[in-house]
Protein backbone atom coordinates (compact mmCIF):
# COMPACT_ATOMS: atom_id res chain seq x y z
CA UNK A 1 0.00 0.00 0.00
CA UNK A 2 1.32 3.45 -0.88
CA UNK A 3 2.03 5.92 1.84
CA UNK A 4 -0.78 8.40 2.41
CA UNK A 5 -0.01 12.00 1.47
CA UNK A 6 -0.24 14.37 4.40
CA UNK A 7 -2.97 16.99 4.26
CA UNK A 8 -1.19 20.28 4.76
CA UNK A 9 -3.32 23.01 6.20
CA UNK A 10 -3.18 26.75 5.80
CA UNK A 11 -4.99 28.23 8.75
CA UNK A 12 -6.87 31.51 8.67
CA UNK A 13 -7.66 34.32 11.06
CA UNK A 14 -10.70 34.50 13.33
CA UNK A 15 -12.51 37.84 13.05
CA UNK A 16 -16.12 38.55 13.94
CA UNK A 17 -17.00 34.85 14.16
CA UNK A 18 -15.72 34.14 10.64
CA UNK A 19 -12.45 32.76 9.34
CA UNK A 20 -11.12 35.23 6.75
CA UNK A 21 -7.70 35.09 5.11
CA UNK A 22 -5.41 37.93 5.96
CA UNK A 23 -6.26 41.02 3.93
CA UNK A 24 -2.58 41.04 2.92
CA UNK A 25 -2.75 37.51 1.56
CA UNK A 26 0.41 36.60 3.50
CA UNK A 27 1.09 33.49 5.52
CA UNK A 28 4.04 32.02 7.36
CA UNK A 29 5.21 28.47 7.96
CA UNK A 30 4.84 27.01 11.43
CA UNK A 31 7.39 24.36 12.35
CA UNK A 32 7.56 22.02 15.28
CA UNK A 33 10.37 22.08 17.83
CA UNK A 34 12.55 19.90 15.57
CA UNK A 35 12.04 22.17 12.59
CA UNK A 36 9.60 19.95 10.70
CA UNK A 37 6.83 21.74 8.83
CA UNK A 38 3.48 21.63 10.62
CA UNK A 39 1.17 24.02 8.80
CA UNK A 40 0.90 27.52 7.36
CA UNK A 41 -0.63 30.22 9.50
CA UNK A 42 -2.03 33.49 8.19
CA UNK A 43 0.21 36.50 8.76
CA UNK A 44 -2.15 39.29 9.72
CA UNK A 45 -1.61 42.92 8.71
CA UNK A 46 -2.64 46.21 10.31
CA UNK A 47 -5.83 46.15 8.28
CA UNK A 48 -6.80 42.84 9.85
CA UNK A 49 -6.25 44.53 13.21
CA UNK A 50 -8.54 47.33 12.07
CA UNK A 51 -11.25 44.86 10.99
CA UNK A 52 -10.92 42.93 14.24
CA UNK A 53 -11.39 46.12 16.25
CA UNK A 54 -14.55 46.94 14.30
CA UNK A 55 -15.89 43.44 15.00
CA UNK A 56 -14.96 43.61 18.68
CA UNK A 57 -16.50 47.06 19.11
CA UNK A 58 -19.70 45.92 17.45
CA UNK A 59 -19.99 42.86 19.68
CA UNK A 60 -19.12 44.62 22.93
CA UNK A 61 -22.46 46.16 24.06
CA UNK A 62 -24.40 42.95 23.39
CA UNK A 63 -21.86 40.78 25.20
CA UNK A 64 -21.72 43.11 28.19
CA UNK A 65 -25.53 43.27 28.31
CA UNK A 66 -25.87 39.52 28.76
CA UNK A 67 -26.39 38.40 32.33
CA UNK A 68 -23.19 37.29 34.04
CA UNK A 69 -24.89 33.95 34.60
CA UNK A 70 -25.39 33.58 30.84
CA UNK A 71 -21.77 34.49 30.12
CA UNK A 72 -20.73 31.86 32.64
CA UNK A 73 -22.88 29.26 30.92
CA UNK A 74 -21.38 30.07 27.54
CA UNK A 75 -17.84 29.86 28.91
CA UNK A 76 -18.61 26.59 30.63
CA UNK A 77 -19.99 25.19 27.36
CA UNK A 78 -16.69 26.16 25.70
CA UNK A 79 -14.83 24.19 28.37
CA UNK A 80 -16.99 21.17 27.57
CA UNK A 81 -16.04 21.47 23.91
CA UNK A 82 -12.35 21.89 24.77
CA UNK A 83 -12.65 18.63 26.67
CA UNK A 84 -13.90 16.97 23.47
CA UNK A 85 -10.78 18.16 21.61
CA UNK A 86 -8.34 17.11 24.30
CA UNK A 87 -6.45 14.74 22.01
CA UNK A 88 -6.09 17.31 19.23
CA UNK A 89 -4.74 19.91 21.63
CA UNK A 90 -2.36 17.37 23.14
CA UNK A 91 -0.99 16.53 19.68
CA UNK A 92 -0.54 20.19 18.83
CA UNK A 93 1.30 20.89 22.07
CA UNK A 94 3.58 17.93 21.44
CA UNK A 95 4.34 19.56 18.12
CA UNK A 96 5.66 22.57 20.00
CA UNK A 97 8.14 20.37 21.84
CA UNK A 98 6.38 19.07 24.93
CA UNK A 99 6.48 15.40 25.96
CA UNK A 100 3.24 13.49 25.83
CA UNK A 101 2.74 13.69 29.59
CA UNK A 102 3.63 17.36 29.78
CA UNK A 103 1.30 18.15 26.87
CA UNK A 104 -1.57 16.28 28.49
CA UNK A 105 -0.95 18.05 31.79
CA UNK A 106 -0.97 21.44 30.08
CA UNK A 107 -4.19 20.71 28.22
CA UNK A 108 -5.91 19.52 31.39
CA UNK A 109 -4.67 22.55 33.27
CA UNK A 110 -5.96 24.83 30.50
CA UNK A 111 -9.41 23.26 30.53
CA UNK A 112 -9.54 23.39 34.33
CA UNK A 113 -8.48 27.03 34.22
CA UNK A 114 -11.26 27.80 31.76
CA UNK A 115 -13.84 26.09 33.98
CA UNK A 116 -12.49 27.96 36.99
CA UNK A 117 -12.90 31.31 35.23
CA UNK A 118 -16.36 30.32 33.90
CA UNK A 119 -17.46 29.95 37.51
CA UNK A 120 -16.30 33.49 38.27
CA UNK A 121 -18.60 35.14 35.74
CA UNK A 122 -21.53 35.57 38.13
CA UNK A 123 -19.39 35.99 41.25
CA UNK A 124 -16.89 38.71 40.38
CA UNK A 125 -19.48 41.44 41.01
CA UNK A 126 -20.03 40.21 44.57
CA UNK A 127 -16.31 40.28 45.25
CA UNK A 128 -15.41 43.60 43.62
CA UNK A 129 -18.71 45.44 44.12
CA UNK A 130 -19.50 47.18 47.38
CA UNK A 131 -22.22 48.95 49.30
CA UNK A 132 -20.53 52.09 50.58
CA UNK A 133 -21.34 53.82 53.87
CA UNK A 134 -21.91 57.54 53.22
CA UNK A 135 -22.84 60.47 55.46
CA UNK A 136 -26.18 61.29 53.89
CA UNK A 137 -29.55 59.85 53.02
CA UNK A 138 -28.22 57.80 50.12
CA UNK A 139 -27.82 54.17 49.33
CA UNK A 140 -24.37 54.24 47.71
CA UNK A 141 -23.06 51.25 45.85
CA UNK A 142 -20.29 50.43 43.41
CA UNK A 143 -20.52 47.79 40.70
CA UNK A 144 -17.92 46.55 38.23
CA UNK A 145 -18.36 47.25 34.53
CA UNK A 146 -16.31 45.95 31.61
CA UNK A 147 -13.60 48.23 30.24
CA UNK A 148 -14.65 47.61 26.63
CA UNK A 149 -12.44 46.38 23.83
CA UNK A 150 -9.17 44.80 24.97
CA UNK A 151 -6.08 44.03 22.89
CA UNK A 152 -4.19 41.00 24.15
CA UNK A 153 -0.67 39.88 23.27
CA UNK A 154 -0.89 36.21 24.22
CA UNK A 155 2.19 34.63 25.79
CA UNK A 156 4.08 31.76 24.18
CA UNK A 157 2.75 29.10 26.54
CA UNK A 158 0.46 28.15 23.71
CA UNK A 159 -2.70 26.89 25.38
CA UNK A 160 -2.58 27.44 29.13
CA UNK A 161 -1.05 30.85 28.56
CA UNK A 162 -3.72 31.81 26.02
CA UNK A 163 -6.56 30.59 28.22
CA UNK A 164 -5.08 32.39 31.22
CA UNK A 165 -5.16 35.77 29.47
CA UNK A 166 -8.31 35.34 27.36
CA UNK A 167 -10.87 33.88 29.77
CA UNK A 168 -10.52 36.56 32.50
CA UNK A 169 -10.85 39.35 29.91
CA UNK A 170 -14.07 38.15 28.30
CA UNK A 171 -15.94 36.76 31.29
CA UNK A 172 -16.59 40.24 32.66
CA UNK A 173 -18.11 41.47 29.38
CA UNK A 174 -15.08 42.75 27.50
CA UNK A 175 -14.44 41.85 23.87
CA UNK A 176 -10.95 41.07 22.67
CA UNK A 177 -8.43 41.13 19.86
CA UNK A 178 -5.81 38.47 20.57
CA UNK A 179 -2.42 38.26 18.89
CA UNK A 180 -1.61 34.55 19.19
CA UNK A 181 1.79 33.18 20.11
CA UNK A 182 4.06 33.78 17.13
CA UNK A 183 6.04 30.48 17.11
CA UNK A 184 3.10 28.28 18.16
CA UNK A 185 -0.16 29.72 16.82
CA UNK A 186 -1.91 26.43 16.04
CA UNK A 187 -3.54 25.82 19.45
CA UNK A 188 -4.95 29.36 19.23
CA UNK A 189 -6.53 28.61 15.86
CA UNK A 190 -7.92 25.35 17.16
CA UNK A 191 -9.36 27.30 20.09
CA UNK A 192 -10.90 29.66 17.53
CA UNK A 193 -12.54 26.67 15.85
CA UNK A 194 -13.98 25.72 19.22
CA UNK A 195 -15.21 29.26 19.87
CA UNK A 196 -16.76 29.52 16.41
CA UNK A 197 -18.96 26.49 17.04
CA UNK A 198 -19.83 27.47 20.61
CA UNK A 199 -22.54 29.91 21.74
CA UNK A 200 -20.02 32.73 22.02
CA UNK A 201 -21.30 35.65 19.90
CA UNK A 202 -19.09 36.51 16.91
CA UNK A 203 -16.64 39.31 17.59
CA UNK A 204 -16.22 38.70 21.34
CA UNK A 205 -12.93 36.95 20.65
CA UNK A 206 -10.92 37.80 17.54
CA UNK A 207 -7.71 35.87 17.03
CA UNK A 208 -4.93 37.09 14.76
CA UNK A 209 -1.78 35.17 13.95
CA UNK A 210 1.33 36.85 12.68
CA UNK A 211 4.30 38.88 13.78
CA UNK A 212 3.86 40.45 17.18
CA UNK A 213 6.23 43.32 16.54
CA UNK A 214 4.32 44.20 13.38
CA UNK A 215 0.82 44.09 14.88
CA UNK A 216 1.26 45.17 18.50
CA UNK A 217 2.03 48.86 17.79
CA UNK A 218 -1.18 49.21 15.77
CA UNK A 219 -3.16 47.77 18.65
CA UNK A 220 -1.36 49.94 21.19
CA UNK A 221 -2.01 53.14 19.24
CA UNK A 222 -5.57 52.35 18.12
CA UNK A 223 -7.92 54.97 19.55
CA UNK A 224 -10.87 52.58 19.72
CA UNK A 225 -9.23 50.00 22.00
CA UNK A 226 -9.72 50.57 25.72
CA UNK A 227 -7.28 48.14 27.29
CA UNK A 228 -4.04 46.42 26.47
CA UNK A 229 -2.64 43.21 27.93
CA UNK A 230 1.07 42.99 27.20
CA UNK A 231 1.66 39.54 28.72
CA UNK A 232 3.22 38.17 25.52
CA UNK A 233 5.45 41.18 24.79
CA UNK A 234 9.19 41.28 25.42
CA UNK A 235 10.68 44.24 27.24
CA UNK A 236 11.34 46.51 24.24
CA UNK A 237 7.97 45.86 22.66
CA UNK A 238 6.21 46.38 25.98
CA UNK A 239 7.90 49.75 26.44
CA UNK A 240 6.96 50.90 22.95
CA UNK A 241 3.40 49.70 23.38
CA UNK A 242 3.00 51.36 26.77
CA UNK A 243 4.13 54.67 25.29
CA UNK A 244 1.73 54.37 22.36
CA UNK A 245 -1.10 53.30 24.66
CA UNK A 246 -0.60 56.36 26.87
CA UNK A 247 -1.81 58.51 23.99
CA UNK A 248 -5.44 57.55 24.61
CA UNK A 249 -5.14 56.45 28.22
CA UNK A 250 -5.63 52.74 27.67
CA UNK A 251 -5.62 50.49 30.67
CA UNK A 252 -2.36 48.59 30.33
CA UNK A 253 -1.48 45.31 31.99
CA UNK A 254 2.30 45.08 31.92
CA UNK A 255 4.05 41.74 31.39
CA UNK A 256 4.24 39.72 34.59
CA UNK A 257 6.38 36.74 35.40
CA UNK A 258 3.90 34.84 37.54
CA UNK A 259 3.86 31.08 37.21
CA UNK A 260 0.76 30.10 35.32
CA UNK A 261 0.58 26.73 37.05
CA UNK A 262 -0.37 28.38 40.34
CA UNK A 263 -3.75 29.82 41.36
CA UNK A 264 -4.13 32.99 39.26
CA UNK A 265 -6.30 34.92 41.72
CA UNK A 266 -8.66 37.64 40.51
CA UNK A 267 -6.04 40.17 39.39
CA UNK A 268 -6.51 39.44 35.68
CA UNK A 269 -10.27 39.82 35.92
CA UNK A 270 -10.11 43.11 37.78
CA UNK A 271 -7.43 44.50 35.47
CA UNK A 272 -10.04 45.25 32.83
CA UNK A 273 -12.95 46.34 35.01
CA UNK A 274 -14.19 49.84 35.67
CA UNK A 275 -16.13 50.78 38.78
CA UNK A 276 -19.47 52.51 38.55
CA UNK A 277 -20.74 54.15 41.72
CA UNK A 278 -24.40 55.08 42.10
CA UNK A 279 -25.90 57.45 44.68
CA UNK A 280 -29.48 56.38 45.23
CA UNK A 281 -31.59 58.69 47.42
CA UNK A 282 -33.37 56.94 50.27
CA UNK A 283 -35.93 58.09 52.81
CA UNK A 284 -37.09 61.17 50.87
Amino acid sequence: MTERLSVRKTYKLFIGGAFPRSESGRSYAVNDAKGTFLANAARASRKDVRDAVVAARKAQPGWAARTPYNRGQILYRIAEMLEGRRDQFTDELRGSGLTKTAARTEVDAAIDRWVWYAGWADKIAQVTGTANPVAGPYFNFSTPEPTGVIGILAPDGPLLGLVSVLAPAILTGNTTIVIASEPAPLPAITLAEVLATSDLPGGVVNILTGHRTELAPWIASHMDINGLDLTGADEDLATDCEQAAAENLKRVLSPTTNDRATDPGIARMTAFLETKTVWHPVGI
Binding site: V49, R50, V53, W218, S221, H222, M223, D224, I225, A244, E247, N248
Partner: peptide, 9 residues
Protein backbone atom coordinates in the same frame (compact mmCIF):
# COMPACT_ATOMS: atom_id res chain seq x y z
CA UNK B 1 -1.90 61.15 12.78
CA UNK B 2 -0.89 57.69 11.56
CA UNK B 3 -2.96 55.87 14.18
CA UNK B 4 -6.42 54.42 13.83
CA UNK B 5 -9.09 56.77 15.12
CA UNK B 6 -12.03 55.81 17.33
CA UNK B 7 -15.62 57.05 17.18
CA UNK B 8 -15.42 58.25 20.80
CA UNK B 9 -13.43 61.25 19.62
Amino acid sequence: TGVYAGPDY
